[in-house]
Simulated scan of single mutants.
Amino acid sequence: MTDANTPTPPPLPDRPAAEAARAGATPAGGEDTVGIAGVDDTGVPRLVGDLDDIGRGFLAALFDLTFTRFITRRLASVFYLVGLVAIGISFVAAFVGGIVSGIGALWWNPGGGIALIVSTIIVVPVLAFLAVVVLRFVIEAGVALVAIAENTERTAANTRR
């Protein structure tokens, strides 16, 4: 006796996974599948196209004058690394410059020199941290915008049938 609250099991596929893998990308109904390169031994279709081409054809995408392929996701980590290096160099330069200026100011204005050293020790690391946070936000926003555009393009392509 089954209880009304007992969930029913999901339906079984039309054919076993091994048979689907041997048959290729054509499903049991015989209809053509667009964007499916084949079926692995689990019976799950593999996608090809934009998702499969990540990391390939970078120069072709770079010089694509129609802007149909995006390179933002591929370059986001490079931009982040370059930004972190620039922030690091700026941090060291500002920190050392502030300390040296503070020490120099101690000779003619001891109170101002101490204030400059203390403010350098407090302000420069806080500004460097905020710069890293802003850099990360900007790069994530760019990547998210490109992801939205790619997903919208895929959705539009799948609804044109």
Rank of each mutant, 00 (worst) to 15 (best):
P125T: 11
M1I: 08
E150W: 00
I36R: 12
V134C: 05
A131I: 00
G29R: 04
A20I: 01
S119G: 14
V100T: 08
T33K: 14
P11L: 01
V126S: 09
A147D: 13
G35Q: 03
E31R: 12
A157S: 07
D32F: 15
P27K: 01
S77E: 04
D50Y: 11
R74M: 06
R69I: 04
R73A: 12
R160N: 13
T33E: 13
A4M: 05
T33F: 11
L59N: 05
V48M: 15
P13R: 14
W107N: 04
A147G: 10
G142D: 06
W107H: 07
V134W: 09
G113T: 06
S101F: 10
L84K: 04
G57S: 09
L51K: 03
T66R: 14
G112C: 02
Y80C: 00
N158P: 00
I114S: 03
T155W: 14
R46P: 13
A28F: 13
I103L: 11
P110C: 00
T66Y: 05
R161S: 04
V133L: 03
A94N: 10
L130P: 00
V132M: 06
I114R: 04
G38E: 13
G98Q: 08
R154N: 07
G113V: 02
V146S: 01
I139V: 14
L65F: 01
T155K: 15
D50K: 06
A17M: 03
A18Q: 12
V92I: 08
P45R: 11
G104W: 00
I99F: 13
G113Y: 07
W107L: 07
R73W: 03
G98K: 12
V85A: 14
A23T: 07
D52L: 13
V92N: 03
F137V: 09
V82G: 03
I99L: 09
I114A: 10
A25D: 14
A37Y: 07
